[in-house]
Write a protein that binds this DNA or RNA. Sequence first.
DNA 1: GGGGTCCACTTGTCATGACAAGTAGCCTCG
DNA 2: CGAGGCTACTTGTCATGACAAGTGGACCCC
Lengths: 271, 271
Amino acid sequence: MPTGTVCIVKFVDEPLYQRIADDLRRRIARGDLPVGSALPSESQLCEQWAASRGPVRQALSALRAEGLIGGGRGRSPVVRTSQVPQPFETLLSFSHWARSLGRTPGQRTLEIARRPARQEVADALEIDEGDPIVDLVRLRLLDGRPTMIERTTFVESVGRLLFDFAFDPDSRSIYAYLADQGVDLSVARHVFDAVAADPTDASLLEVPEGAPLLRERRRAGSASGEPFEYSDDRYRPDIVTFTIENAEQAHPSVGRAWRPTPADSTQTHPK
Amino acid sequence: MPTGTVCIVKFVDEPLYQRIADDLRRRIARGDLPVGSALPSESQLCEQWAASRGPVRQALSALRAEGLIGGGRGRSPVVRTSQVPQPFETLLSFSHWARSLGRTPGQRTLEIARRPARQEVADALEIDEGDPIVDLVRLRLLDGRPTMIERTTFVESVGRLLFDFAFDPDSRSIYAYLADQGVDLSVARHVFDAVAADPTDASLLEVPEGAPLLRERRRAGSASGEPFEYSDDRYRPDIVTFTIENAEQAHPSVGRAWRPTPADSTQTHPK
DNA sequence: GGGGTCCACTTGTCATGACAAGTAGCCTCG
DNA sequence: CGAGGCTACTTGTCATGACAAGTGGACCCC
């Protein structure tokens, strides 16, 4: 702490550079620092926070790594974007994603059953064939329109929670519920390909039989690496796409995208 | 520079922390520091490089951001993995990706033409409809098997290079050639969906008409954001998939995946 | 008015010193 | 012999000072 300053800090447990970064993040998110505007210079931040250049630079470096700010030697840092995508939740939870877009998600639970694991899901969940699992089949809706059909398999210890509790799968996010129950979901692997709609898919998604569907197979698990969920999700490609944004010097950002005008197939390259 | 040391440095233009980081990266990649082993402590690195803790910590922080090392307070940093994926090049260049997998890429150039831009590509390339562009259609092969059909459009200033030079599109990577010509390709946006194979796709990819194909639409450009390439790539989903690996506390990693056994459609969750 | 020069300001890099906080091994005590 | 504490070592955080390198604008000269 510089000499001659009275130290009135509440959250001394949180390091200084993090408080600086959080404050800047807040000011950017709130529009206080609009996109394109220049941030306060390092010396100004030092004065404001009564800090030395160390923590200030550490905070700016964190924002730079997140892609929030840009700039270079001799130039003040500039706000690049006001919001960073939340790839993990966006990619995992259909309802979370839909709401973040301002759309209203819906769902119809078609089946919830406990049965022995087939070979395919047993491999994915790293259990033995025939071990008990819980299958959940849901039709997901976006603004009331059939959008995706989701065939999810949980290992028994997690799937049991779906029965035990008074859980209504049609009301809230299943992941929010599982998180409340202490299930720590922190890694996921998504594999994308395309499949033809089988008769069931076709009637539920209201597309012709054999129509191309965008398939996402997802395996999710805890931080220690043990998987407990495997899912086969089939999207109507005229409603939902997936995007990857990729820069040479930055981390890729991934996301799900909604296609507003389903009739037109030759558009959507926003901005 | 610490007191009492004779300064014999060659690449003073390169900052010290970067030289330290590069050296550690090399030692990790060469297996000198195997996965799981502990790195030298900060004080040891300070001695080895005759540096203060600043640059050393900056170098370690860079490696940590790349996911190469882990560790925490009180524990020496530990090597986590010996190689980091190169998502940008892997996702961009088909031939680069194929070779990194040990497969042999091939290609047949079906068309290269200069013509006015259609509405769709004009929007994507941020030019006016009717402006001259260069179209390139290629069938890409993997181990001799038809795998993907690529319809790429370049803005005229870049596409011209494909004519000017004695360029043989069937021999080497088009991106390597363009990079040599001074084209700086550094940002890309990929949009994935599914389409049905039209008669042309079907005959070239040797699939039935109407078969589902995995489509990637790509827009690539320079660091300043101006796009100069737009592409519509259609993959046989039984050969190629795309994957996203996603952890709550880490940056997502993206990649292209090869499916070794095309006959079997209900597998491939490697590892 | 146009062009070149100079200067104040900014960020990038590095040294040095200090203390806090966490880890792991050793050692003593019960 | 086990449990607990103690200690050396590690990394995390921060202050201070210094110089290099790049930017942008004011200023002057032609």
